[in-house]
Amino acid sequence: MTDTDWPLWEVFVRSRRGLSHTHAGSLHAPDAEFALRNARDLYTRRGEGVSIWVVPSSAITASSPDEKDPFFEPAADKPYRHPTFYEIPEGVKHL
């Protein structure tokens, strides 16, 4: 890798007020300021966004797909976290 090979950035775009930022894609840029400008030109040419975040790809910590099952398992055996787990007599309203 040469010293002019710009680092990779992940781009997150808020499409409109009231919604959260969503991952749009990635790009190369020498620094954060350029990354923002490039992201504007690359991912919001048609008014797709009102706000952009750029994050160095190297700063992201990801869960490993290999750990998928044990890692997410705690959620699988707790059906009582869902409202449908509970039996409520018919006719009871606003619950």
């Binding site: 990779l8 992940e10 790809s57 190297s58 992201i60 910590t61 990801a62 869960s63 490993s64 750990e67």
Partner: peptide, 9 residues
Amino acid sequence: MATAAAHQT
């Protein structure tokens, strides 16, 4: 947990 971006991994 893997401490690297999706791209690099």
